[in-house]
């Protein structure tokens, strides 16, 4: 899929909200969070929410970078590597206490959750997504 700006944002929201949520539901109980299940869910879903909200801003940046590419494409690898700055930013926000409503999330739990979610979302975006949504790749990643 070669994204347009609105396609990026829609795909980000859809995949994190659907695929990300399902995966978070599954994985949270086994994360080394050292907290109650309710508190763990609170933390992991907060991570998801922050990735989603900040993600919309990141997409604006990516779209800007894309303008410097002759083909106006977005290589598959970029979709994977952008996990690094995004993950670091979210972690610093959590560690710095910028997300007031949750207590703490241990580093390993955060890393496992964030990286696995990112990988799954990325994999789905690079193939399976085309199966139910036959217009998606032709419409620059837009769903509506």
């Amino acid at each position: 899929m070669l994204p347009t700006l609105s396609g990026r944002i829609q795909t980000r929201i859809f995949l994190l909200a659907v695929v990300g949520s399902i995966w978070t539901l599954i994985i949270t109980p086994v994360l080394p969070t050292e907290a109650s299940l309710a508190a763990s869910y609170g933390a992991t879903f907060s991570v998801l929410l922050v990735v989603l909200v900040l993600g919309v801003l990141w997409e604006l940046v990516y779209h800007g970078i894309q303008q410097f590419r002759w083909e106006k494409d977005w290589p598959t690898l970029f979709g994977l590597l952008t996990a690094i700055p995004e993950g670091l930013l979210v972690w610093f926000l959590f560690a710095g206490g910028a997300i007031p409503w949750i207590g703490s999330l241990p580093g390993p739990a955060f890393v496992i959750h964030f990286v696995s979610t990112w990988l799954i979302v990325w994999l789905v975006a690079n193939g399976p997504m085309r199966v139910p949504f036959i217009h998606w790749r032709i419409n620059g990643g837009r769903l509506i």
Binding site: M1, L2, P3, T4, G7, W70, E71, K72, I138, G140
Partner: peptide
């Protein structure tokens, strides 16, 4: 800016890739 050297203009496919679904298509 399209890449080029030694006489050739370089491009993966016959049009920039995003004509098939991305920004340029739109």
């Amino acid at each position: 800016r399209r890449k080029g050297a030694d006489g050739w203009a370089y491009q993966g496919f016959n049009y920039p890739k995003s004509v098939w679904g991305g920004q340029l298509k739109q």
